[in-house]
C-alpha cells in the first residue's frame, strides 16, 4: 500500500475532528446527574487516531477536540473548558505512552481505560485544588467508576472499529 499523501492525512485529521464535534453534540444531549460525569464519547476519535496520526497531527486533533467540545457545550470561556483541556491532555499523554510502550501487550481497550482514568484523576485533582476542596473527593468513587465502565465500552468499540473498518485501513 502506498503512503497516503499529505492532503489525505489532513483529511483524516479533519474527519476525526468533525467526528469528535458530532460526538460532543450527542454527548451533550444525554442527561447526566452531574455536569462532570461525562461518557467520553468525544474521546473515540482520539483512540481511533492512535494508530495513524503522527505526533503533530495527534496534538492538532486533541486541540480541535477540546475546542469543538467547548463550542458545542458553550463553555469555551469558562472554567469548565479548563477541566476539559486538563482532562484531554492528561488522557492523550497517557494514551500515547501506553500505545508506544505496549504495542504488543495493550489493545485499545486498555489504552482507553488508562486514558479515561488519567483524565478523571487529573480533573479530580484540579477540582480539589481549584473549586470544591474536600467535596471533590466525595464524588471521586462514582466519578472514576463511571469513567471506567464507559471507557471499557468505548475501548471495545474502538478496538472493533480499528480492526474491522475498511475506511480506516486506507490510512494505515
Amino acid at each position: 500500500m502506498t503512503q497516503p499523501s499529505k492532503s489525505v492525512r489532513i483529511e483524516f485529521v479533519a474527519l476525526l475532528a468533525a467526528f469528535a464535534l458530532f460526538l460532543s453534540t450527542v454527548e451533550y444531549m444525554i442527561p447526566k446527574p452531574l455536569p462532570f460525569m461525562r461518557l467520553g464519547l468525544a474521546n473515540l476519535p482520539l483512540m481511533i487516531a492512535l494508530g495513524v496520526a503522527r505526533n503533530k497531527e495527534y496534538a492538532l486533533l486533541s486541540i480541535l477536540k477540546v475546542l469543538g467540545q467547548a463550542l458545542v457545550t458553550g463553555t469555551l470561556f469558562s472554567y469548565i473548558a479548563l477541566f476539559s483541556v486538563v482532562g484531554t491532555f492528561a488522557s492523550v499523554a497517557v494514551m500515547l505512552v501506553l500505545y508506544h510502550v505496549g504495542k504488543k501487550q495493550i489493545s485499545l481497550i486498555g489504552i482507553g481505560v488508562g486514558g479515561a482514568m488519567a483524565s478523571n484523576i487529573a480533573q479530580l485533582v484540579l477540582s480539589y485544588y481549584l473549586l470544591f476542596g474536600d467535596a471533590a473527593l466525595l464524588i471521586a468513587t462514582p466519578f472514576l467508576a463511571v469513567g471506567l465502565i464507559s471507557s471499557l465500552i468505548l475501548g471495545i468499540f474502538a478496538h472493533q472499529f480499528v480492526t474491522q473498518s475498511r475506511w480506516y485501513q486506507r490510512y494505515l
Binding site: L98, G102, K104, Q105, I106, S107, I109, G110, I111, V113, G114, L148, L152
Partner: peptide, 9 residues
C-alpha cells in the same frame, strides 16, 4: 483482550 489490558483494568 490482551494481558496489558487486564493489568490496566
Amino acid at each position: 483482550i490482551k494481558i496489558g489490558d487486564v493489568i490496566i483494568i
